[in-house]
Design a binder for these strands. Structure first.
Length: 194
DNA sequence: ACGCTGATGAAG
DNA sequence: TTCATCAGCGTT
């Protein structure tokens, strides 16, 4: 069952943790691509210096100020895309970055997109997920509750099985423990925890 | 440890 | 208009 908009219209920290174990699905012309979410990060509001929307509304970040349950996909480092799910009510800018998946279906297509045979290397990083799924700016703004890209209910992860660490790859806001992984899952982006 | 790569937003 | 920055990845 597909997660409804009300799932996303809550505290970002709660959504980020509850997304662990859920299934990201993308229906494409070449078949269904899916994977279990095993790593997320929260980016929350104007007081979080690492959040793209920290300095207010811009053309790029207005999507984070919009309604919850929308895909926010942006280009990073000139070559890779990152997929986020917008959270919380409209006018509060926040999102959850999907950082790593355990591939479930469409694995052959993912291998082709990634030019990579090792299943563990297919989706263990936010840029790799978008490459494996073929997601780019064309899917920015897609409604995760009503489009070919959505998230389904699946496993429930017990709080005791969630590892909390600082976020990766940022230069500000490092002190916030807003990265979440399924403990011991081998598909996380950084196998060694910080 | 480093280079690739280009959109973004702030500064001028 | 220029310029530093950047929620990553692959190769060295």
């Amino acid at each position: 069952m597909l997660l409804p908009q009300s799932f996303y219209n809550r505290s970002t920290l709660q959504v980020a943790q509850e997304l662990l174990g859920k299934k990201l699905v993308f229906r494409t012309e070449v078949g269904i691509l899916s994977g279990r979410i095993v790593e997320t990060e929260a980016y929350i509001g104007q007081d979080d210096p690492a959040c793209h929307a920290a300095k207010g509304r811009t053309k790029r970040t207005e999507i984070m100020f919009g309604p919850p349950g929308i895909a926010y996909i942006y280009l990073i480092y000139g070559m890779y895309y990152c997929l986020n799910a917008v959270t919380e009510a409209a006018d509060f800018p926040a999102a959850v970055l999907i950082r790593a998946l355990e591939p479930l279906s469409g694995i052959d297509t993912m291998k082709k997109h990634r030019k990579q045979e090792n299943i563990r290397q297919l989706t263990n990083g936010p840029g790799k997920i978008c490459q494996a799924f073929g997601l780019d700016k064309n899917m920015n703004g897609a409604d995760l509750c009503n489009s070919n890209l959505f998230i389904e209910m699946d496993k429930e992860i017990a709080p005791s099985d969630i590892l909390k660490t600082s976020r990766i790859g940022i230069s500000v806001g490092r002190e916030k423990p807003w990265r979440f992984c399924i403990k011991g899952n081998p598909f996380a982006s950084h196998p060694k925890h910080r």
